[in-house]
């Protein structure tokens, strides 16, 4: 048998095989439970309200706040620059572009920590990265940033410094008074264009 025929006998069936199999989703990278568990234990996905306030004050362009409360609660009051992604519609197509990116830090928040944690877990299982939770949510935000309680005069320097920061940040971010519906409501930024994000680091190669 000619070598060409042998080659054709091997390659043609394989070619037909790959043509017949629909584009697979098997290879799509999903985060495995072990990785997520390690992250949960590690706790690096939890951000304090101070860190978030600091990023907001400095107008950190990598910060993307995501409000997972209902749309009504979002409309009433939300953090500066936050976008509304209600937990009920978390997996809806229209929000994919917020999560399918790796330029920004997506910081999830709700009133407490529970809803944000649920959203975080669901999104991590989808394989999305760069997700964080604002610990304590809006309630803790109001308590620490908007209306920080003055520490005792005998408190340590650190604590006093933190109080000063909170007071200043709260002032910049529209606090100082009990949170009201008339507080900050900056227009939500447009979703980052899917696909426009620079490709993540690839394994280098070439000839």
């Amino acid at each position: 048998m000619k070598p060409l025929y042998k080659l054709a006998a091997v390659l043609l069936p394989l070619g037909i095989l790959v043509a017949a199999i629909p584009d697979n989703k098997v290879g799509v990278e999903k985060s495995d439970p072990q990785t997520i568990l390690a992250e949960v234990k590690d706790g690096s996905h939890l951000l304090t309200t101070d860190v978030v306030a600091d990023m907001l004050v400095k107008k950190d362009p990598t910060l993307q706040l995501i409000d997972v409360r209902s749309k009504a609660e979002y409309d009433q009051y939300h953090l500066q620059g936050a976008v509304s992604v209600p937990l009920d519609n978390l997996l809806s197509e229209e929000f994919v572009s917020y999560f399918d990116q790796d330029m920004k830090m997506n910081v999830l928040y709700a009133n407490g920590t529970t809803a944000a944690s649920e959203a975080w877990m669901l999104l991590r299982q989808q394989g999305y990265k760069s997700l964080y939770i604002m610990q304590g949510g809006m309630n803790y935000w109001a308590e620490t940033i908007m209306n920080p309680s003055r520490p005792a005069a005998t408190a340590s320097d650190d604590e006093l410094a933190r109080y000063d920061f909170r007071k200043a940040a709260g002032g910049v971010l529209g606090g100082g008074a009990p949170v009201s519906a008339t507080a900050v409501s900056a227009p939500a930024p447009a979703a980052p264009k899917a696909g426009a994000a620079p490709k993540k680091k690839r394994a280098a190669g070439g000839c």
Partner: peptide, 9 residues
Amino acid sequence: RGLFAFLLV
């Protein structure tokens, strides 16, 4: 992708 691969073969 698969169809293109087959055609290339």
